[in-house]
Simulated assay, not measured.
Amino acid sequence: MSSQGLVHGPLGAKCLHVCVDMQAVFLPGSPWANPWMERVLPAVEELAIRHADRTIFSCFIPAENANASPGMWKRYWRKWESSTLERVDPAALRLVPSRARLAPPARIIDKRVDSPWTEGHFEQLLGSGEVDTLVVTGGETDVCVLATVLGAIDRGFRTVVAADAICGSADETHDAAMTLYTSRFSEQVEIATTDEILTSWR
């Protein structure tokens, strides 16, 4: 997917970088391995280093076990029982080391669902009127990144997806999500490269 660029102009002082779920549990060797995650890590890191004090890392925290989950999450965690808190190595849930060393000043928010918007803490971190633009990186393009982007759209944030700093575990659905961003949400989502974002965001 080629970059559209920042069609709505430069990024301002009210911009914030949201890095989605760049955790060790998604690295190769895990049941949830994302084969493209290592490839996008340098771009994500470049953004986070340059704007560490304007970065929030979200971390996906599994359920304790399937029975502790509501509704259809029970079915989900039965399938992924090996990744529940009862079974998974706690170290796997931490940010990959190159991200963890940036916090602080970067901030971390834990979430137990795909979206960071549903548990209350995320919007508190954004502050009232202190942020008007979100730059989104991380994984996966078609799941937690998608949930993050849709929540930003609903709340009226200018939303910039860093094309070379997001990843999915399946090319087909990654490409489909990118097409969704640029077609159905073309007025609300901009697709830009990390270089374009860094050049514009000063």
Rank of each mutant, 00 (worst) to 15 (best):
residue 143 V to P: 00
residue 152 A to Y: 04
residue 60 F to V: 03
residue 16 L to K: 10
residue 31 P to E: 10
residue 180 L to V: 01
residue 73 W to F: 13
residue 57 F to D: 04
residue 48 A to N: 13
residue 75 R to A: 05
residue 133 T to P: 00
residue 11 L to V: 02
residue 43 A to C: 13
residue 65 N to M: 02
residue 17 H to S: 03
residue 58 S to H: 01
residue 53 D to I: 08
residue 68 A to F: 01
residue 65 N to Y: 04
residue 148 T to I: 03
residue 60 F to K: 02
residue 195 D to R: 10
residue 128 S to H: 08
residue 63 A to S: 10
residue 75 R to W: 09
residue 83 S to L: 07
residue 138 G to R: 00
residue 80 W to Q: 05
residue 144 C to M: 12
residue 87 R to E: 06
residue 142 D to H: 07
residue 28 P to F: 09
residue 135 V to P: 00
residue 192 A to D: 14
residue 101 R to A: 06
residue 145 V to S: 14
residue 187 E to Q: 13
residue 167 C to Y: 02
residue 95 L to W: 12
residue 188 Q to R: 15
residue 136 V to R: 00
residue 9 G to T: 11
residue 73 W to R: 09
residue 91 A to R: 12
residue 166 I to E: 07
residue 12 G to M: 03
residue 156 G to I: 14
residue 116 P to S: 11
residue 28 P to K: 08
residue 153 I to W: 15
residue 32 W to T: 09
residue 117 W to C: 12
residue 23 Q to N: 11
residue 5 G to R: 05
residue 151 G to T: 15
residue 174 H to P: 01
residue 36 W to T: 08
residue 56 I to F: 08
residue 138 G to T: 01
residue 159 T to I: 10
residue 84 T to V: 12
residue 150 L to D: 13
residue 14 K to C: 02
residue 88 V to I: 09
residue 38 E to S: 06
residue 194 T to L: 12
residue 175 D to V: 01
residue 142 D to K: 11
residue 38 E to G: 04
residue 58 S to D: 02
residue 129 G to C: 13
residue 172 E to K: 13
residue 124 Q to W: 07
residue 158 R to N: 06
residue 118 T to G: 04
residue 50 R to Q: 11
residue 57 F to K: 06
residue 175 D to G: 03
residue 94 R to I: 15
residue 202 R to L: 14
residue 189 V to C: 07
residue 66 A to D: 01
